[in-house]
């Protein structure tokens, strides 16, 4: 698309503003005028070791093809033009969901739709089960993967938000072995992450949600299935007196990365579950909203919306907790 047009600006200093006809701009169109993928070398390793080796060899010239729900549109529009595409769908090692004590490890290749129906996820990670149906449409989730969503690192996406709320850990693998990066530092900028050019996202580890904790995921989008204008994921624990004893609040769609609304968490911790109190505390999230105006929403709207979804999600999670949560 035109956003990718290369611009060589040869304005002389002191020339009038760029919108006047005195400006002389030479444009060279490069990519983004298309709807069929460019040429690339296709590689489809069977093993993780082979995939890692390929990634190490090609570095930033290679892109990983998992579910394809983000990469394929970019390839079709030629907004991405990698020399090598490494298809990891044949790496079956990445397609497991396993519980190990208080941690659930989800392989990067697990399909998003599997999270909606997997009994282990519903019991151990109820926030995921609530969040995943908001990802696109079922036709996307049948193919889209957990690792793909995390690696794409879209701040309006649901899975990155749940990872931040849950204090999940992203597992990366390079030729020198594995390393674990907390979700809070994995997402390090607009559509970027901490995965190095010679590494792959291989799994994400979520702490099991404590028994009795309540969860909620509230999202507002222009249409159901669109990117969130704002969304909030919440895990809450409430004591016998109806006070918050633990609260984790994540917000998607309002900044360059998925946020934790720590101000809101701190203000409510120890306080009673009361709609007015929650609504007032939720307004603290507005200060963290940095996404500017776009064609779907103004910044002012996003601020109010962020507070609204946080308030509603916190109240819903508290209600869920008081009803016993997921068990």
């Amino acid at each position: 698309m035109v956003a990718t047009t290369t611009v060589r600006d040869s304005r002389v200093p002191g020339a009038p503003s760029p919108t006047t006809h005195d400006r002389l701009v030479v444009y060279r169109t490069t990519i983004g005028q298309a709807m069929k993928p460019p040429r690339f070398q296709y590689r489809d390793p069977d093993t993780l070791a082979d995939a890692v080796a390929l990634k190490a060899r090609h570095g930033s010239d290679a892109l990983i093809l998992a579910g394809g729900q983000s990469l394929m549109p970019m390839l079709n529009m030629r907004l991405a033009a990698p020399s090598v595409v490494i298809d990891i769908n044949g790496v079956t090692d990445l397609q497991q969901i396993t519980r190990n004590g208080d941690v659930v490890e989800i392989g990067a290749g697990v399909r998003q739709s599997a999270l909606e129906t997997d009994p282990l996820i519903r019991e151990a990670l109820p926030l995921l089960a609530r969040a995943v149906p908001h990802i696109g449409h079922i036709e996307n989730r049948h193919r889209g993967t957990v690792g793909g969503s995390l690696a794409h690192a879209d701040a309006s996406a649901e899975l990155p938000c749940t990872a931040v709320v849950s204090d999940a850990v992203v597992v990366l693998q390079g030729q020198n072995g594995r390393r674990e990066v907390p979700a809070s530092s994995f997402f390090d900028g607009f559509m970027t992450n901490a995965c190095a050019d010679d590494e792959l996202v291989v799994a994400v580890r979520y702490p099991v949600t404590p028994a009795g904790a309540g969860t909620a995921f509230v999202e507002v989008a222009r249409r159901n299935g669109d990117f969130a204008l704002a969304a909030a994921g919440v895990i809450a624990e409430v004591d016998g007196d109806g006070r918050f004893t633990r609260l984790a609040v994540g917000v998607a769609g309002v900044a360059s990365v998925p946020l934790r609304a720590t101000d809101v968490e701190q203000e409510l911790l120890g306080r009673p579950v009361d709609p007015a109190t929650i609504e007032a505390a939720a307004k603290r999230v507005e200060a963290a909203v940095t996404t500017g105006d776009d064609i779907h929403a103004t910044s002012a709207y996003r601020k109010h919306l962020a507070a609204t979804v946080v308030s509603r999600a916190v109240l819903a999670a508290a209600t869920d907790a008081r009803n016993g949560g997921n068990r």
Partner: peptide, 21 residues
Amino acid sequence: SRYIAEDGVDVLDVEFSDLPL
């Protein structure tokens, strides 16, 4: 093919002089 036609579009070089819009 459409694929090759798009390959061709990719490598066209056009120079424009902006006019006031």
